[in-house]
Design a protein around this nucleic acid. Structure first.
Lengths: 209, 209
DNA sequence: CTAATTTCATAGTGATTGCTATGTAATTGT
DNA sequence: ACAATTACATAGCAATCACTATGAAATTAG
């Protein structure tokens, strides 16, 4: 008799030896390791020591290195809808951009996390063997930029921003500053440095205030 | 009798079998390879095929992988004095920043070179084994930023910029945009996209014009 | 209890990493 | 011609890479 395969979540698994580690906590350790050292330049040995589990456990629980990284990336970036609603619930596109810059400056200089942005640094370069991973991360960056671009376009339609405002350039400029904040954070810039840079970048919005 | 060791340039070398390849041309090939694939994620095998010479030739001519990369980085970045005089000979700090952004947007989207900036991407992340290389590249970034910062400070002293202008934040913001342009270029943005972003970023200088 | 299932730790796999030992080829100095 | 010097190509070094085969351990179902 053919039985439908049932995908069981780890919480409802009933038979067999139970997992000896916290899957989510180990994933967070992996994320922090990729965040600090990058995707290709983090070895499985780095991950086993950071996650506290052996290589076969990693492969059984997450697939392979690529799948683990992509899952860690999802944990880092969060749901796209969250960003979308955050930007759409801001009073103006300008406020949304400011919030993005401030939260980036803050997140990139956390004292319990590596400096900079995982999405900006972990796959900034890599061999052609990881071109798909680089493209996946680039897509997340693009989606966030498109969110901001759409928000700006809405403000143009609503008359909050002038009709000749360049939504694409304005959103991309903001994203560019975010990426740059990551580089500066990795180079040792302080949170105040980054916040001052954000303030300076927001002056580009002055004609629209 | 003790004889002083004489460092001979490749042009004045007289004895022994001559080099069978163009050292400078091979270095440029190495630079382009590091530019595209990054420092740690470029293998010696990648370099031998790109440079057209065997591994022992690389090690004899350039030292090791680290020394080759640093030499390629020097070839890419050029002399710091060149940047310094360029910024100091610009009419204003604002012009210097604009020139920097435009030349970055252009250089990051060359059709005979990899997209983006070698200094921004090649060591954006890496294992702790290459921490010194990452620091060396970060230093070059810092020096260019300091050049611009000094140029801004000069304009403040000269009264071209107001006394309350934040030279550090303004220069760092500009550098951040340059780094961001590299990321966007790597993500496939066109030269026009990047130039529009540069225009948008320059609006932050509007109160100073 | 036994059988079935799942995870565990140990110990590897072949491939690739950066790098080099070795002997030969090509040039200059005498 | 011959020694000295330098670069060449071949081949291979130990270490690490991502990944896995294997069998024992831990759990549930019946």
């Amino acid at each position: 008799m053919i039985v439908m395969e049932r995908k069981l979540s780890s919480a409802t698994r009933k038979v067999g030896r139970p997992l000896s580690f916290d899957r989510d906590a180990a994933l967070e350790r992996a994320m922090l390791t990729f965040w600090r050292y990058g995707y290709e330049t983090t070895s499985i040995a780095d991950l086993t020591s950071a996650m506290g589990i052996t290589a076969p456990s990693i492969y059984a629980a997450y697939g392979d290195k690529k799948a683990l990284f992509l899952e860690a990336t999802r944990l880092y970036a969060g749901d796209l809808n969250t960003h979308q609603t955050a930007m759409n619930s801001a009073p103006t596109a300008r406020d949304a951009a400011y919030d993005l810059l401030v939260s980036a400056a803050t997140a990139f200089t956390g004292d319990t996390t590596p400096p900079g942005c995982l999405l900006a640094s972990a796959t900034a370069s890599g061999s052609s063997a990881s071109a798909d991973v680089q493209a996946a991360v680039a897509d997340i960056r693009r989606q966030i930029g498109n969110c901001l671009c759409a928000r700006i376009q809405r403000d143009i339609v609503d008359g909050i921003l002038p009709a000749d405002a360049d939504a694409k350039a304005l959103s991309q400029m903001t994203i560019a500053v975010v990426q740059g904040l990551s580089v500066l954070a990795r180079d040792g810039a302080s949170r105040d440095d980054l916040l001052n840079i954000a303030e300076e970048a927001m002056k580009a919005w002055r004609p629209y205030t």
